[in-house]
């Protein structure tokens, strides 16, 4: 009974404290809104990603169309990133479900998922650190940058830099890029299938990612 009374008395205090904290804390959505940032949400259509690899028999590839995540950038992005250092550091988080990457052969998919420890690491993740412009200020169309970010596969994170293009059209942002990596850098053993198809360590990840402003609730 006593504890119940204390609990009831404390409720207004908790609510008040929470409201105050909303007012003083830099809650990202509010801050971002006041800073004029736009949240671009990944779109279920139009994206694609691909892994190209080699083997002792023939080249192979796995493809998917599911790229989740979001980007928070200023309203002038990506043009603003050519001249403004702050604008070249948008918040970008990307997620690709491992299971959504498929080759023509289920055996290959099964082995790759096993090597990537899919049950425990369901997504390939990427977080952008910064963009370095390669296009000249005032350029139009697909703007070129070097993107430095953290790629996480099988729970292993590696910072890398890759060339990307970013294009804004009809309100949507389309980001495309590719990077060569080694599977073993992320603790992934190159899959062997049927006891004779041995994949090479080097692979190329390429993607096209489509985002659009998140509609107002």
């Amino acid at each position: 009974m006593k504890s119940e009374i204390i609990f009831r008395r404390s409720i207004p205090l908790v609510v008040t404290a929470f409201i105050c904290s909303l007012a003083i804390q830099p809650v990202s959505a509010q801050t971002n809104a006041s800073a004029g940032l736009v949240r671009y949400q990944a779109q279920p259509k139009g994206s694609s990603c691909k892994i190209d690899g080699t083997s002792n028999i023939h080249d192979w590839s796995m493809e998917g169309t599911l790229i989740g995540g979001f980007m928070e950038a200023d309203a002038g992005f990506p043009d603003s990133a050519l001249t403004n250092a702050a604008a070249a550091r948008p918040v970008v988080q990307v997620s690709i479900p491992v299971r959504s990457l498929k080759s023509p052969h289920t055996t290959m998919d099964t082995r790759m998922q096993k090597e990537m420890d899919e049950p425990n690491h369901k997504n390939i993740q990427y977080r952008l650190i910064e963009l370095k412009p390669k296009s000249a200020a005032g350029a139009t169309g697909a703007l070129q940058f070097d993107a430095t970010g953290v790629l996480t596969v099988k729970g292993v994170s590696r910072t890398n830099t890759m060339p990307v293009t970013i294009q804004k059209a009809e309100g949507k942002l389309k980001v495309a890029g590719a990077i060569a990596v080694k599977m073993t850098d992320f603790g992934v053993t190159p899959p062997v299938t049927l006891g004779m198809f041995t994949t090479g360590d080097d692979i190329k990840l390429s993607f096209e990612w489509v985002t659009a402003p998140k509609p107002a609730p």
Binding site: A42, P44, L66, I67, G68, G69, S95, P97, R99, S100
Partner: peptide, 15 residues
């Protein structure tokens, strides 16, 4: 089931 789960996780909202 896996495909639906992956989609709904990344694109919640039921499109």
């Amino acid at each position: 089931n896996a495909s639906v789960e992956d989609f709904n996780t990344n694109f919640p909202g039921g499109d």
